[in-house]
Nucleic acid binder design. Structure first.
Lengths: 231, 231
DNA sequence: GCGAAACTGTCATATTCCTGTCATGGAACC
DNA sequence: GGTTCCATGACAGGAATATGACAGTTTCGC
């Protein structure tokens, strides 16, 4: 099982190789560049699942890369872990406040770094970490492809499963029908917007068992969202 | 502005006080307990926004607390930062793999801890990181499309939502009806000026719950404004 | 392969909720 | 007191969503 795409920005070749080896052993696909500007290009082209970013690199500084990754809409949500020789508290605080998700000081253990990457990914892309997605009394096990509500297994069709998974990965957030078609059906498919309604209904029908409260909120003129307190 | 509720599980009174002081200064509401079992009770009762968890505490171990917090549906998504004296790599990896979001080794700087808490919260609750418009006791979360007054969710129709959003984006400023029609309805639409009054009324009706003060001020012969001191 | 069962996308229809307008009453201003 | 402006309640039409049904397709067990 592939764990995710990782972009490594590191100009020390020895360290880069070491990390590459470790992460590839853990089933990550690793892209590597020593250069800040190139990192931005790579990230914009195909956003990775996570970025490991050395503070001191060729071209623009790591901090600046971090800032720009955050600013670009297509990479704004990609998590970043900063790697650095600087152990100063002020630097760490600055790194974290610039938008980094974690900050690791050299020397560090590759195993710990792997664990930290997993911890961050668990948050951002629970599915990539082989996690069980949970929301209220709903559980989805990606690996075994099972969904439960209040402990009771729920049968779901493929589309409803992907739809629910998408909601569980972004709980609370409202998605327009167009957006859902893009991310759940696929950007290239040509499907009627209203079809989303139908699948929402099927999903609702499936998960609203035994008088349990509605979990999918309709937001008129906006779309749908996973939500517990407001039907 | 309140930053979130924080549950601190720490049995060293001196350290607990220090952290409490720091986080309260940063506008977190801090609950504290030295005991693992009580921590679980507190967390289950009113899930905090984040948990700071010492590894070595009274009662059950921090690691076990972490595991159980993850298992309970109502707290499964609450982020956890482990605090510990253990610097052993194996422990750190174990902590992170058990479901902790971050792992900080004593001695640590309170400021860095605050920064880490913010970094984690930024991920988990974009709501706490500026995606939310606030005014007085009113909150609007753009992403989840929700509006709350004094913590209570308020249902709003699409137009009222856009209207309120416009006010929240320009608090205090007075807008003429014509201006509001332009920015909230759209420049091209041909709608009666007086219609604005009606929607203002609907908005007022919706957000003035439980005797709360009026937030929308009428400026005679000029328009309306979001304002807390004048009805 | 074959038939049954399940899944998909679409439509027509029902239903719900929202919207803009008006008539009327009331408040502020002069 | 008269005028101007705003607040309110009611309402019909409309827009957005929910629902039920259906034919085409895929999947699965055998």
């Amino acid at each position: 099982m592939m764990n995710g795409n990782l972009l490594l920005v590191e100009d020390d070749p020895a360290l880069a190789d070491l990390l590459k080896w470790h992460f590839e052993r853990e089933d990550f696909r690793v892209s590597h560049t020593p250069d800040g500007d190139e990192a931005l290009l790579l990230a914009a082209e195909t956003p990775p699942d996570i970025i490991l970013l050395d503070w001191m690199i060729e071209g623009i500084s790591g901090l600046e890369v971090c800032r720009r990754v955050r600013r670009a809409p297509e990479t704004a949500n990609v998590p970043i872990i900063m790697l650095t020789g600087r152990g100063e508290e002020a630097d760490r605080v600055r790194g974290l406040e610039t938008g980094a998700d974690d900050y690791v000081t050299k020397p560090f253990s590759p195993r710990e770094l792997v664990a930290r990457v997993r911890a961050v990914l668990r948050r951002v892309r629970p599915a990539l970490a082989g996690e069980v997605l949970k929301f209220a009394d709903l559980e989805m096990d990606i690996v075994s492809h099972k969904v439960k509500r209040a402990g009771k297994t729920i049968p779901l069709g493929p589309t409803e499963f992907r739809l629910l998974r998408h909601f569980l990965e972004h709980p609370g957030r409202v998605f327009s029908r167009a957006r859902l078609l893009d991310s759940v059906w696929g950007r290239d498919r040509d499907i009627e917007l209203r079809t989303v309604d139908v699948h929402i209904r099927r999903l609702r029908q499936a998960i609203n068992i035994g008088g349990k409260p509605e979990l999918i909120r309709t937001v008129r003129s906006a779309g749908y969202a996973l939500d517990d307190d407001g039907g």
